[in-house]
Design a protein around this nucleic acid. Structure first.
Length: 271
DNA sequence: ACGAAGCCCTGCAAGC
DNA sequence: TGCTTGCAGGGCTTCG
């Protein structure tokens, strides 16, 4: 389940192979992702040169002279670099063949991801226009979270996972960050003090940065691998541990569903 | 305008 | 063993 660190790791892994490369061929085997892959994509990309590779939230942006390729990995998607002639496996939906011979290969079993073509300013695209700040950027701060939350009566965990508030905090990291901050996930966002948001904002940054750093250490395995670098080996303290003992106080961790997402917390440590 | 629920999809695990 | 059922989840979309 790619979260921000996984997308960032993917970005760093593929960028050097893509920059300044001309697209030699595009093969679409399965066009029906979350939205259909444009039928004319192969023609659009043919012989175009990659000018830049960037990320906004969990969206990857490949910039060409005449537009941008926007890729989202959904929750089961991955990109890998395959050597010329490497056999195609199940759910390898798209190949983007570079002049170097390397193939940027998109695999997505659940097809929750998307591959779209954007002309003009990409940040004005409806999918990107209303995204909140990057959690590792300067705009994400205690003040920012506090101000945003004042008129929000929803659970702080849902608040934190809202991409209009801040991008890239998925279910796993929301659970972990709230545990480490001592904040109860069901507490209303507007019932949390500035001091506690200060702690939360720092911890969100720490958790994401640590995960990215871990992804970086396995980057060398990116090429030729399964496209899923060994990110997220860090120990999860609450996610997936419902019913087990809290690592801090041994109280049994509670698991509830919040907005269809599994939510795990320590009823003693988190208030 | 806000918040909650629904939906897309496949792989895996559990239950019969 | 092989079926059926339920769950996982990012995030857009719809409903109340």
């Amino acid at each position: 389940m790619p979260e921000l660190p996984e997308v960032e790791t993917t970005l760093r892994g593929i960028r050097p192979y893509l920059l300044k490369q001309k697209i030699q061929k595009v093969v679409v085997r399965q066009a029906s992702l979350r939205w259909p892959i444009p039928q004319n994509l192969p023609g659009l990309l043919l012989k175009a040169r990659v000018e830049a590779v960037n990320r906004r939230g969990k969206y990857l942006l490949l910039t060409f002279p005449h537009g941008h390729l926007m890729i989202h990995l959904g929750m089961s998607g991955s990109l890998s670099l395959a050597a010329e002639g490497k056999a195609v496996s199940k759910h390898d939906h798209v190949d983007i063949v570079l002049e170097s011979g390397w193939i940027l290969r998109y695999n997505d079993p659940r097809r929750f991801g998307c591959i779209l073509w954007v002309e003009g300013e990409p940040f004005e695209h409806p999918l990107l226009a209303s995204l909140g700040p990057e959690p590792l950027g300067d705009l994400f701060s205690d003040d920012y979270l506090y101000q945003c939350s004042r008129r929000k009566s929803l659970a702080v965990k849902s608040f934190l996972m809202d991409s209009k508030i801040v991008v890239g905090v998925g279910n796993i990291y929301a659970n972990e960050a709230l545990f480490r901050s001592g904040i109860h996930p069901l507490r209303k966002a507007n019932r949390i003090s500035l001091n506690r948001y200060a702690r939360l904002s720092v911890i969100v940054r720490e958790v994401l940065a640590a995960a990215i750093q871990q992804g970086g250490t396995t980057l060398r395995d990116f090429v030729g691998g399964d496209g899923k670098p060994g990110y997220f080996k860090q120990e999860l303290q609450v996610y997936g541990r419902g019913g087990q003992a809290c690592v801090k106080c041994s109280t049994t961790l509670k698991e509830v569903r919040l907005g269809q997402r599994s939510t795990v917390y320590c009823p003693n440590c988190q208030r």
